[in-house]
Simulated scan of single mutants.
Amino acid sequence: MPAGLPASLGCDAVGVPARHGLGMLTRLPHPGCVFSDADWWWWIVPEGSDLELTWPLPSYYSRGACVPTESARLIHWPEDAIPYTPPIPLYLMVCQITGTAPAWARYEPSRAHEA
Rank of each mutant, 00 (worst) to 15 (best):
R106T: 15
A3Y: 02
W41C: 05
P102N: 12
A7T: 11
W41H: 09
H76E: 09
D39S: 14
A103R: 05
V16W: 00
S71V: 03
P102K: 11
A65Y: 04
Y91P: 02
H76W: 07
G4C: 10
V16P: 14
G4R: 00
S59R: 01
H20G: 10
L92M: 08
P86D: 05
W104K: 00
V16C: 15
W104T: 01
H30S: 14
G4S: 05
G99D: 03
G64L: 00
C95L: 01
L9S: 14
D80G: 00
E79S: 00
I88Y: 07
S49A: 15
P87G: 08
T98M: 11
C95K: 02
G64V: 05
G99P: 01
D12C: 06
P83W: 04
I97K: 12
D80C: 03
W42G: 07
G10I: 01
Y61D: 08
L92T: 04
Y91A: 06
G99A: 09
G15M: 01
M1Y: 02
P86S: 02
A18Y: 07
I88S: 04
L51N: 08
P86E: 06
A3C: 02
P17Q: 05
T100G: 03
A72C: 08
I88Q: 14
R111M: 14
I75T: 11
A13T: 11
C95E: 02
M24F: 06
D50P: 01
E52A: 12
Y60W: 09
W40I: 11
D50S: 09
S36K: 10
L53R: 15
G23I: 15
D39V: 10
P86G: 01
I82M: 05
S71W: 01
A72F: 01
